[in-house]
Design a binder for these strands. Structure first.
Length: 573
DNA sequence: GCCGTTTTCGGCCCGACTGTTTTCAGTCG
């Protein structure tokens, strides 16, 4: 039975929670949490790595013991220590810890005093006012517990970056207009451009007596004020999004921005470096003894620990610190590096605008070329093309190119990859196209072996260029289908094919870990809007975000090239 | 449980806010 990294990580997280409730060493608990995070961010399944004979104890934060435990999970599907710990405590107790404001100590206290071991029992205990009489608890804590239980019941998943983006921008503008406010910046995972955002961390500097805190909690969209302090406040917006605002002194702006941008794992790793240099980094600055020696800008903070500036998108403690030490940080791709879009639909199939309208919109955005890649007939619901209709569109493109200057329209297709790896249109017509994107739109439930084989066989067609949305995941909706992505990458390299980074905010795949893997293999990626509407070219921005998180440079991306250079790369081997 | 230019033991990031306290523990990020 295949065991995926997520399942390994979940067991470690669960064990960490239970050990914490039992009062185990906080450092031991942290070791399990760190290991969970490491496993989760591996580009390949640990199971595969073990099958290939790799030594997991060389991974950061994973020693002999944890490597053994990963192996146990992968081989047996179980972790005996977790089962034993679940018997000793009560396995549901870790659910209680998911409530904000309820940590291991309180879970333990409530459990021991009242025998509570589920959210439901906790709710009943709080409703009958049994919590407020416990030592160290009071009426407010009891009320908060009740509120958080209710909120948890209708809480959704982490919202997508594209959903949070407009909310953040409005709030940023609102705060910037408050009297006495100087700088406003949204830090946190938003600034790291993570594909989903848990909450917003906003940082401001201001003149004395600026009413910004009051104005913040008085913002129209605020649903509830959770915390209101001199320098830190927290609110919940009507959208359910939590927003933390911190006021920082001007001289500490850089240190605070650095601190609040995270990630937590990155910050901890850099603080350890600082410690070795006898320095202390906190949100106010870099301290040598009691003297602040830096902190006005982020660059200063990096300088003090002997590192070059690390872009926020890379700050995940996934090798960026080592790369920075060696002066080997990538020069990340930027939006303006993109010169064309290689995945576009028109109203001939399921797009909303005509070929001409899409072309003109792309031209206005400054794109030099636009590949029109409508669906093939297997996607009947999208009125996919057969050979005849595709040829008709190709003629239309010829006429449009003759008529419209300033942008080149490329003839293309998003052809379906059938279950057996064949393509949905004849090779004859495909070979006449400038660009062929092949995608999977059905039969997601094949085994890993068959799905991998299917994709590689599709790439055997000499007219195939780019694998569209390679793993099929939809953020918060559908996981990736089983696929040996590393094998697919190797096959693409062999055949002179490429993979797409689909920039639709629901897709954003290749995932960043896979982008990095592709880069390490020397496999280039196409960042494509998969535009179905004139405004969808805006998606390229989110594609760039994901590419930057995946360490990609302009040279790693196909469509940073002029059409004449790109054409050479599309020539099959 | 991990880790090592302070290396096989003894450390492990650091500060704000809240609530329950009368000086601090718990939690969070």
């Amino acid at each position: 039975m295949p065991i995926h990294n997520k399942q390994v990580a979940e067991k470690f997280h669960r064990l960490a929670d239970l050990l914490e409730i039992q009062g185990a060493s906080p450092f031991r608990v942290r070791a399990y949490r760190t290991a969970a995070q490491t496993v989760e961010s591996l580009p390949r399944d640990a199971q595969e790595m073990l099958e290939d004979g790799e030594d997991l104890s060389t991974l950061p934060g994973i020693g002999a013991d944890l490597a053994g435990k990963i192996e146990e999970i992968v081989k047996t599907g179980e972790l005996s220590l977790l089962e034993e710990t679940e018997r000793q405590t009560t396995s549901e107790l870790s659910d209680l810890m998911k409530l904000p404001g309820v940590g291991p100590k309180r879970v333990k206290a409530i459990h021991e005093a009242l025998g509570v071991h589920s959210i439901r029992q906790l709710q009943q205990a709080a409703e009958s006012h049994k919590i407020r009489h416990l030592e160290g608890f009071g009426g407010k804590t009891e009320e908060k517990i009740l509120r958080e239980i209710e909120r948890q019941q209708d809480r959704q998943q982490r919202p997508k970056l594209s959903e949070v983006d407009p909310i953040a921008r409005s709030l940023e503008n609102y705060l910037a207009r408050v009297d006495g406010v100087k700088k406003v910046v949204v830090a946190g995972s938003f600034r790291r451009r993570k594909e989903t955002v848990g909450d917003l961390d906003i940082l401001i500097t201001r003149r004395k007596n600026s009413p910004v805190m009051d104005r913040f909690v008085g913002y129209d969209e605020v649903d509830e004020v959770v915390e209101l302090g001199e320098t830190r406040s927290t609110v919940i917006l009507q959208s359910g999004l939590q927003v933390d605002l911190s006021v920082v002194p001007e001289v500490s702006y850089g240190a605070a921005l650095y601190y609040f941008t995270g990630s937590k794992e990155h910050n901890i790793a850099v603080r350890k470096i600082a410690q070795k240099k006898n320095l202390k980094i906190n949100e106010y600055g870099v301290l040598k003894g009691d003297d602040r020696i830096a902190g006005t800008t982020e660059e200063e903070v990096f300088e003090q620990v002997g590192l070059p500036f690390i872009p926020p998108e890379l700050r995940e403690n996934r090798g960026e610190i080592e790369a920075a030490k060696k002066g080997a940080l990538p020069k990340l791709i930027e939006r303006n590096d993109l010169r064309g879009n290689l995945h576009t639909h028109t109203s001939d199939t399921d797009g909303k605008y005509t070929l001409r309208e899409m072309a003109e919109s792309a031209k206005e955005l400054g794109l030099e070329y636009l590949a029109v890649t409508d669906h093939s007939k297997a996607v009947a619901i999208a009125k996919g093309f057969d050979e005849k209709r595709l040829r008709k569109q190709m003629e239309k493109i010829d006429r449009l190119n003759a008529e419209v200057g300033g942008i080149r329209i490329l003839k293309g297709i998003e052809v379906d990859i059938m279950e057996d790896g064949s393509l949905d249109l004849e090779d004859g017509v495909l070979s006449e196209l400038d660009i062929v994107v092949g995608s999977i739109h059905g039969k997601f439930d094949l085994s890993r072996e068959r799905q991998t084989d299917r994709v590689i066989r599709a790439m055997d067609h000499t007219c195939f260029h780019i694998l569209g949305h390679p793993t099929g995941r939809l953020i918060n909706e559908r996981g990736p289908y089983p696929l040996d992505i590393e094998n697919v990458m190797d096959a693409a390299l062999d055949r002179g094919c490429y993979l797409e980074l689909n920039a639709q905010p629901d897709r954003l795949e290749l995932h960043y870990a896979h982008c990095k893997l592709a880069k390490e293999k020397g496999l280039k990626v196409a960042i494509s809007a998969d535009a179905h509407s004139k405004t969808d070219f805006e998606f390229l921005r989110f594609g760039i975000d994901q590419a930057r998180r995946g360490w990609l440079e302009a040279d790693d991306v196909l469509n940073t090239r002029s059409w004449s250079d790109l054409k050479k790369l599309l020539r099959r081997r």
